[in-house]
């Protein structure tokens, strides 16, 4: 095997648009925390240009097909697109079968589209730990739009909201979706809803259900008796609306034929312009960086704990807990004290 390329060479290459360098840099960032630090340090100043778009939703709703169709619509406008498609790592083998690409063919001759599959490894919330870094690299690599497809979200996999500028939640008719959206907390993170597979029966009902839920996100408009008089009470805008003033669109799409995908792209462009115009963009970016910092600090503290604490301490404390001599909170405090002292 040949010697691996020096890190600086990968950084220089990816900033110049060398796609192999970009691909290799993403692998380094996934494999090695120290390399991730070096590479992100080398490219960070060149990031912040791309519109970062998260696409999430239940398994099989058509996320990959939709992302591919969306990339095509962006290309029609002359915009370049980087895609990060995340699939789960098997908890048993540590391996992964990354199949999103099967639905994303048709861009292979086009240097303006770059598709990368990523396994979650030890990441949580439908993303990998390296997802945010990989998005930075795609941004630095010069892509105008960076789209991340999460693992088919079951519940509460809302991590995507802390890495993207705009979140598209994909629903499909006949999934009992109205209940699902609420359960998963997806309603709160969606900037745009795409009701995909609109060629199927029941799409209209799904759209109506979502629109109704969005309206009742705060409290529904209702007629009340006020001092004996009938009065219309305005719906209280949901907190997100009050903060941001973006009316969440619910769009029908048919990813396999392309119907509605242009409208989805236009809605994304409108959201991007609105983020810029309203100042919400830097607010979201600030939140994103705060989240990144927290994640990195947690990882660093854990790593330091592994390095510095004697392996005996942990087992002693566990032993003490087994004998009910020390409770979990005190045991944790003990370890943290050792770490800072």
């Amino acid at each position: 095997m040949p010697k691996p390329a020096p890190t600086q060479q990968l950084i220089d290459g990816l900033l110049k648009g060398d796609r192999l360098a970009l691909a290799r840099a993403i692998s380094r960032v996934e494999d090695d925390a120290a390399e991730a630090a070096r590479i992100v340090r080398g490219v960070f100043a060149q990031t912040g240009r791309a519109h970062l778009i998260g696409v999430t939703g239940a398994p099989g709703t058509g996320k990959s097909t939709l992302v591919s169709a969306l990339a095509e619509r962006y290309r029609a406008q002359g915009l370049t697109v980087g895609v990060l498609a995340v699939d789960p790592t098997s908890p048993f083998s540590g391996g992964a079968l990354l199949g999103d690409r099967v639905r994303m063919t048709g861009h292979s001759g086009d240097a303006g589209v770059f598709i990368r599959s990523m396994a979650t490894r030890r990441g949580t919330g439908g993303l990998a730990r390296a997802s945010a870094d990989a998005m930075l690299l795609l941004d630095a690599g010069g892509f105008d739009r960076v789209i991340v497809e999460t693992v088919g979200a079951g519940q509460a996999e809302i991590e995507i909201a802390s890495v993207a500028d705009t979140v598209v939640v994909v629903e499909a008719p006949g999934l009992g979706d109205e209940v699902q959206a609420i359960k998963a907390g997806l309603l709160e993170i969606a900037d745009i809803f795409a009701v995909n597979k609109a060629d199927r029966k029941g799409a209209g009902r799904t759209v109506a259900a979502l629109e109704m839920m969005l309206e009742t996100g705060g409290a529904a408009a209702q007629t009340v008796l006020h001092h004996g008089q009938r009065m219309e009470m305005e719906a209280a805008a949901s907190e997100a609306d009050a903060e941001e003033g973006w009316p969440i669109p619910v769009l029908e799409t048919v990813a396999v034929s392309g119907r509605g995908v242009e409208q989805l792209r236009d809605a994304l462009e409108r959201h991007w312009a609105w983020l810029e115009g309203s100042g919400a963009r830097s607010a979201r970016e600030g939140r994103r960086f705060g989240h990144m910092l927290q994640t990195l600090i947690q990882a660093e503290v854990l790593a330091r704990m592994e390095r510095t604490l004697s392996p005996g301490l942990r087992s002693d404390l566990v032993e003490g807990m087994l004998r009910r001599q020390i409770d979990p909170y005190s045991a944790a405090a003990e370890m943290v004290k050792k770490l800072s002292g």
Binding site: S90, A96, L97
Partner: peptide, 9 residues
């Protein structure tokens, strides 16, 4: 996959 590789299909 079951042997621990990351497989892109």
């Amino acid at each position: 996959r079951d042997a621990g590789f990351e497989v892109i299909y």
